[in-house]
Structure formats: C-alpha cells, structure tokens
Amino acid sequence: MSYREPLSQTAIAISISESDDLAVLGLAEEHLRDAMTEISRHMLAMGARLVYGGDLRDNGYTKLLFELVARHRRDADVGDVRPAIANYLPWPVHSMKSREYLSGLREDLEGIGELYCLDKEGRAIADDAKGSPSPAAFSDEDWASSLTAMRRVQTEAIHARIVLGGRVTNFKGLMPGIAEETEFALKANQPLYLLGGFGGCARDIASDMGLMPEMERSADWPGRIGFSSWRANDLSNGLEFDEIRTLARTVHVDQAVALILRGMLRLSRRAGHD
C-alpha cells in the first residue's frame, strides 16, 4: 500500500488580501505575504490541494501561490495526479484578459494548477475571455453578483478555509471579500481557521466573535453586524476554545501553522473513526 500524506484528500481555500491597518499593528505587507507563504508551504507538504479565488496582477497573491506550488509541490500519493492548486476567476477578472494571456497562463500551470474561468452565474466556461473590455464595462452589480457566484462555487469545492488579512474599504462586491468567504464557510459548517493578528477584515471578524480585544473600531462595512452572532464553536475546526483564541491573536507564523495543522489532523482522525 502506498503512503498517503495526512491531508491528501483535503482541498483548502486560502482567503487573503491586503490589510488596511497593518501599519497600526506594527506590521508590513511582507508579514502578510510571509504568513501566506509559510501556511501554504506546510499545507502542500501535508498533501493538501490549495484553492484560491483571486486576481491576476503580476505582484498579486495568485502569482505568489503559483510560484510557491512550482517550488514546493510534493505529491500526497504516488498515484495522485491532481494539480496542487485551483484558482477560480470571476467573470470580470478573466474577461479583461485576452485569450492568448489566459492560454499562456494555463500552459505555465500545466501539471501544477488549474484555472477556472467562471461566467456571471459561476459556471465554468471553456472559451475563456471573448475580448478584453475595460474595467468600466462592468457595473457594480456585475462585480457583486460575479464575486458572490465565484465564492459560492469555490465553497462547494473545498473542505476547509484559512482566513487572514482583508481590505474593508475600496472593495468590490456586496461586502469585503474576506467577509463573504468567511460567511459562506460558517453557513456551510466548514472548518474555518481565523487569523486576526494580521489585521484587516479577519481581525474585525475575530473581534466581533469575541476572540480578541476590540481595537479602535474600523468602518462598519456591509455585513459586519452579522458576525457578532457567531461563536468559536461555529468555526468547526478541531481546536479547543483557547487554541482558537490563540490562533485568532497570534502574529507568529510558526504558532499559527502548528495550530492549523493540529485542528486539521484532529478532524482527520475523527473522520477516520466515524
């Protein structure tokens, strides 16, 4: 029998974007990128498949993930030929790229990752972009419905979600992206690992759930009030309350990784005993 990595059948979504308040916390963008890199690297080493819904900026988190997978990929099983990363692109994002650009990206990702271009309703489309319209071609409603559809489809494809950072201003959609992805995970009762120590939307959510002290309150972004009704046990992540609270507050990446893996491995063992 071939050896299987502990998380070889687990699809884990990474929810991350820039935090508006990193400087207030004495942190910089590099801290957020380093945290994502280390967390992703350990998930890959345990055989997990990473799932991300993001943009295609040259310096964005999507590209960072792709580079990380290319460097650190380690198959969970000798017979496991699944790509190690899946990236879901909402309609306006991929529509502003040419067919040639997306085809080239797919070629670069061959054997490493999969790129899913979605239409406005979240259906995967094979023909990719049909042109390169300007951002002005998409209304606020186009962005909101497309992003919500992408996050719904992504949630259906994953087993767990890790959340850190996140803008609460100048976002597209019904609410900040981190908030909507977190809400989808909570409503689906999926294991959710919430890191508030790196500020942003994740910190607001952790504070509203009673997992860390209140800072000077940020803007009352759309949908925020709803998170005060959720509690630690709603995270369903295999961790005890003290561990959940520590994860929510820490800025030490090694500690965060250890806690995430502890929770995931506990859930894996419990599932094996069912």
Rank of each mutant, 00 (worst) to 15 (best):
L102K: 03
K130N: 14
Y61A: 10
R33V: 15
V78C: 11
L118V: 03
I12S: 02
E18N: 12
H94E: 01
D75T: 10
L68A: 04
V93K: 06
G111L: 01
S134T: 12
R74V: 10
L32C: 09
N59L: 08
A13N: 05
S95L: 01
K120M: 07
S15I: 02
D58C: 09
R106D: 06
E100G: 10
V81H: 15
A137C: 08
G54M: 02
A48Q: 03
I14W: 05
D128K: 04
K130T: 13
T62E: 00
T62V: 02
I112E: 05
D80T: 04
K97L: 08
A11Y: 15
H72D: 06
P90A: 02
Y61M: 07
A48F: 07
S19N: 09
A13K: 05
V93I: 14
M96F: 08
I112F: 12
S19Y: 07
G104D: 01
G47M: 00
A126S: 15
L64Q: 15
L22G: 05
P92G: 01
I12F: 05
E100C: 03
N59M: 07
G54V: 05
G131W: 01
H72R: 13
I125L: 12
D21W: 04
A86P: 02
S95R: 01
G111F: 04
L27M: 09
A129S: 15
R106F: 00
L115D: 08
D108Y: 11
G111M: 02
A23C: 04
K63E: 12
A23T: 13
A126P: 14
S40N: 06
E107G: 07
G111C: 03
D127Q: 15
R74E: 14
Y101M: 00
P133A: 02
E100Y: 11
F66G: 04
S132F: 03
I85L: 15
G79M: 07
G131E: 06
L32A: 14
R73Y: 11
E18L: 13
Y61C: 04
H31R: 09
Y101W: 14
L109S: 03
R73N: 07
Y52M: 01
R99T: 09
A23R: 10
Q9K: 03
A136S: 11
G60K: 15
L118A: 00
A86Q: 11
L44Q: 02
H94L: 00
P90K: 00
A45H: 12
P92F: 01
V51L: 00
G113D: 04
A126T: 14
T62M: 07
G122Y: 04
E121W: 05
N59W: 14
M46S: 08
T37R: 15
T10I: 05
E29F: 10
W91Y: 11
T62N: 05
D34C: 10
G47R: 06
H42Y: 11
D21R: 08
L22H: 07
S98R: 00
S103M: 08
G104S: 13
E67M: 04
M43T: 01
E18H: 14
L44H: 09
A136P: 08
Y61S: 10
I12C: 12
R73V: 00
P92C: 00
L89P: 13
D34K: 04
